[in-house]
């Protein structure tokens, strides 16, 4: 049974991944990715990773892909320019990817792995309780770090997306700006300030 699911879900995963890569329309590519994520969730279930499968569906297929779809919707036509250019780079890319795949196949076939059968695990394998316990004991640092990363990600989203809310130098009058092409020179700045100070003292009290 597991093998059947493995093969089916596996084929689905590969197919949808290929669709993502090949697809011209980014919207369809995003949809293919959702399918891909779903098939991966099925594979996680085969592996008894229940919590991971659900998290995958909720987080990835739910939140992340929705974000993608929002952005693609926002962009509209602008997202659609994708002319494929062939040439040397494309060939090299294919060869590199293929080479890595072949190497991993060779590595697998060469090794006398002792993992022909899954390990014997308890029933609570992959349950939220087990994983939660691990997060809060052995992998506490990862837990805290990931929350920090998510915070940073949120801030980044706000800053990048709503850049106009911050005061920006480029709003100043052209005359007030530093003339183009001149770099900020500490020495020149210092001399200028000195001059200004002199002029002030000269002008009078």
């Amino acid at each position: 049974m597991q093998i059947v699911v493995f093969y089916v879900a596996g084929a689905l995963a590969i197919g949808s991944a290929l669709a993502v890569v090949v697809q011209r329309n980014p919207f369809l590519a995003a949809l293919s990715l959702i399918l891909h994520l779903a098939s991966l969730a099925a594979l996680y279930l085969v592996l008894q990773g229940d919590f991971v499968a659900v998290a995958q569906l909720l987080v990835y297929a739910g939140a992340v892909m929705i974000m993608f779809l929002f952005v693609i919707a926002y962009l509209g036509d602008r997202a659609d320019l994708d002319l494929r250019r062939g040439g040397l780079g494309a060939g090299a890319a294919f060869i590199a990817g293929l080479a890595i795949f072949i190497e991993s196949v060779i590595a697998v076939s060469d090794s006398n792995s002792s993992f022909h059968a899954p390990a014997v695990v308890a029933d609570s394998f992959g349950s939220p309780a087990t994983i939660g316990k691990l997060f809060l004991t052995d992998h506490l640092l990862a837990f805290e770090a990931i929350s920090l990363v998510l915070l940073v990600g949120a801030i980044a989203g706000v800053v990048l997306g709503a850049g106009e809310l911050l005061p920006s130098r480029s709003r100043a009058e052209p005359a007030e700006r530093e003339p183009k092409g001149e770099r900020y020179d500490l020495r020149r700045e210092f001399l200028r300030r000195e001059e200004e100070a002199e002029q002030e003292s000269e002008v009078g009290t």
Binding site: G89, A92, A93, A96, G97, A99, I100, E103, S104, I106, A107, D110
Partner: peptide, 15 residues
């Protein structure tokens, strides 16, 4: 691409 080629080459070398 450069990174990928590098990975392929290194892997081949190790293998």
């Amino acid at each position: 691409l450069a990174i990928a080629v590098g990975i392929a080459a290194l892997a081949a070398w190790f293998m």
